[in-house]
Design a binder for these strands. Sequence first.
DNA 1: TTGAAAGCGCTAACAG
DNA 2: CTGTTAGCGCTTTCAA
Lengths: 337, 337
Amino acid sequence: MNHVKQAKRTTIYDLAELAGTSASAVSAVLNGNWKKRRISSQLAEKITKIAEEQGYALNMQASLLRREKSHIIGMIVPKYDNRYFGSIVELFEDMARARGLFPIITCTRRDPELEIEAARTMLSYQVECLVATGATDPDKITEMCAAAGVRSLNLDLPGALAPSVISDNFAGARELTRRILMNCEKRLGKKEPLLFIGGRGSDHNTAERIRGWRQAHADLGVPVEEDLILACGYAPEKAEKALEAMALKGNAVSGGMFVNSTISLEGVIRWIRRSGDLDDRNLVLGCFDWDPFVTLLGNGIEMVRQDVPGMLAKVFEIIESGESKPQVVKLPPIFIN
Amino acid sequence: MNHVKQAKRTTIYDLAELAGTSASAVSAVLNGNWKKRRISSQLAEKITKIAEEQGYALNMQASLLRREKSHIIGMIVPKYDNRYFGSIVELFEDMARARGLFPIITCTRRDPELEIEAARTMLSYQVECLVATGATDPDKITEMCAAAGVRSLNLDLPGALAPSVISDNFAGARELTRRILMNCEKRLGKKEPLLFIGGRGSDHNTAERIRGWRQAHADLGVPVEEDLILACGYAPEKAEKALEAMALKGNAVSGGMFVNSTISLEGVIRWIRRSGDLDDRNLVLGCFDWDPFVTLLGNGIEMVRQDVPGMLAKVFEIIESGESKPQVVKLPPIFIN
DNA sequence: TTGAAAGCGCTAACAG
DNA sequence: CTGTTAGCGCTTTCAA
């Protein structure tokens, strides 16, 4: 209830003085280890009450400086604005807190420079562990962490130097492709080579998905066409432009389409809407990603939902086990339509 | 390139020893104020090189403890997993960094207890300013901050004790309602009272939107029906259940509908899909929120997109001005269909 | 042009 | 049962 703006924040010394005791007693009480110090519950109560009254807030910087463990866990993530990363971040925070860790998260917008700068900043904040999600150069981050004696893990995109938890992109893409091809047959009367759109050819997941896409074509005896692979990046505009360019070259955009993320799907659908109706175009879509509204788009778009709770459970399992040798854990994604 | 796992992290004392100089010199050089201290560029260079070699990372906790300003800015946010809050968070991080601030963000899942706990934690981390986004009890947070001599601002949901930046919910809802009613007339041949679904009656934004919804009905001479107001909460399941309950009571769900957020819209559309086709039901929808995929849902759903860049620009403007007396800044939202 | 030293607020021995 | 004390790693006078 004290609304006076104080130049100096209340410290344990202030509290000690008010309680007529010492700073160490205050510290012990406020940290909950006063039974260990056998402080009288009377004093404990008094201190707690005074702390409350004064609106005391621990100075974490000082506390951390003194303590050996920071209990801070960091995560870097490429984007917030889609369901996949949004749910990763939200669940990560939750699970971290449930384990008594303080999560700090930062978004790097798929910018390699920002990624390493973010990692360095996290190290400055004394993270005990850093989870690099969808990093472009995870090994660089692992090296930086290792040099500081900090554990790191990769999520979503694997690295060679630290444990990685990812989706089984090959198997997922293979099954997704199979489903799209079957839908083509059902709806268009024939299985035709699919378009692959979105993502970066250089990133591991996209490469694996293209591999699965090829395999499924082979499985079903459908030839693949190399110039139907448009790994144009993730942004909606890029997918939109890629389709436009394709159409301008005189290639009819029709048949089946494997879209590499909902981000790209946004651009794809925008292009479709701009240039004619989805139904009219006889398009059969599948997307290696999930968004609730896409389900509601209709047209039976096949989707793959990555197993975020499963992946994070694995991440924390590895963290808790203390394991730090490189290994890639692949989790099967979930199919939705 | 030193991959040896070190028990102790490299400190400026280690660097000083290696460079044959003192910690204070190292500190000055690494902070870039060595011209002020007139340190020889030779020494500066040497120190920089050694720091690089050793993979030195500043201990921010120690640095912050000593410094007077933390340059940390905090934000609490209810959810990550929708476009609105996702874009707020992403842009906030960006703008904070551009101003030399370190953003720390935490998600409180609309849990009032978590909110104040999160605020306390942020204070422990010595934030210089805290932005409370969509907080259930913003004034409580402002009080806590004030007691610690920390500035706070409210975003999305206003408070009485600190500057607040919000959308103009009344005007937005009024115009959105008007548009839905006009669409009803166009598509269904008549203007009928709209259903209002989603949100909490107790939250300011929902109350303002209901007020706008009423006003628009009055403007167009359409009577409102009180039991068409279903402020059932935000979660998709809640909207879905509310519609189900309404249908079970024998009330036909048809005509126009004002949906209070995309989160709720998810449940609404799910219910529609489960219980018949959107087109068949003659539903005319509007949503006080925006999601790119909703545009692509078709059916001409009217949407309101809140002006996130505008709101954050205003937030930082207020922060930079040092202003801290209560005021509510309302930004007009943008209409999309 | 540089180094020594004090101290930020807290925790954890250790000494009563 | 409780207080004193020694730092954690860094920044910043102050003195040289």
